[in-house]
Design a protein around this nucleic acid. Structure first.
Lengths: 137, 137
DNA sequence: TGTATAATTGCAACCGGGTGCATTTACGAT
DNA sequence: ATCGTAAATGCACCCGGTTGCAATTATACA
């Protein structure tokens, strides 16, 4: 369902700023960084305040339209229609690829069984080395 | 080996600010947050600038005396002599416990085999629910 | 012990992200 | 079409962490 429809359903108003953000997520093939979103909005509508953008990203997140993942200094936003998965980001070349959401199931099980600790790993951003960068020292 | 000795060996100067930080790590039983370190230094020597502290934490990290782990907004510093392990932090009560460093081995193997992606999970800070908080809704 | 000098500190400013509050705006009722 | 009002925006400022630069200080050497 469209992000804008979800906003309306939940009693939020449709503003031009929100339209810009929602459209950008619908057009995006993959995840977006806060920087990219702010740049896009400013391009189409200069003068929009960053706090407006961050507040609306939070709203979209709470409505379940968008997912926010963070790892260290990386923050990534996702349109939820993309499905669930983790992100492998190469620390050398910056290339990013998606990976199966089941990846951490064995770890979750170990933590539950051995440590009585419950974790649900979702949209993890994992930093490492891709094949090319690993080969080339 | 002492952090101060390591500093000296690598051509760094021994300053009172560095002594305070190093001593605090030696006395600490477990990991420390930036907040705790800054508070301790200010208590013993008011007026020390935060940038001095952050810069020195970076130096200790690069010299291998201290390890920095982050996950989202949590940042944790460790004296390396403590040994290696991950941290389970309860999002409800804030309680923190250590867990075995082998935890992510199966994930590392999967990433290497299926995705040709190399990761070395070290000192991860894992947010979840401890037993008590899980039982009490 | 005194001095030269490179490293270190403190400062002030910056960065991404977040918040309280006054002004503006979307939109349901009329 | 107008209006009233609650919600959204822009603004100004806060926060933890980082950086460039001028002033200070630890240390090697005389």
């Amino acid at each position: 369902m469209s992000c804008l429809a979800t906003l309306k359903e939940n009693g939020f108003k449709i503003t031009p700023q929100r339209k810009l953000i929602a459209d950008f997520f619908h057009d995006a093939e993959s995840h977006l960084t806060a920087e990219e979103i702010i740049a896009h909005v400013h391009e189409k509508m200069p003068g929009v305040n960053k706090s407006t953008i961050y507040r609306n990203l939070d709203i979209f997140e709470h409505l379940g339209c968008v997912l926010k993942s963070e790892s260290g200094d990386r923050v990534i936003y996702h349109h939820t229609e993309e499905g669930h998965h983790h992100h492998l980001v190469c620390v050398k070349c910056g290339k990013s690829m998606d990976c199966d959401e089941m990846l951490f199931r064995p770890v979750e099980k170990t933590l539950r069984d051995k440590y009585n600790f419950r974790v649900d790993f979702k949209h993890q951003v994992i930093s490492g080395l891709c094949e090319n960068c690993y080969k080339q020292p």
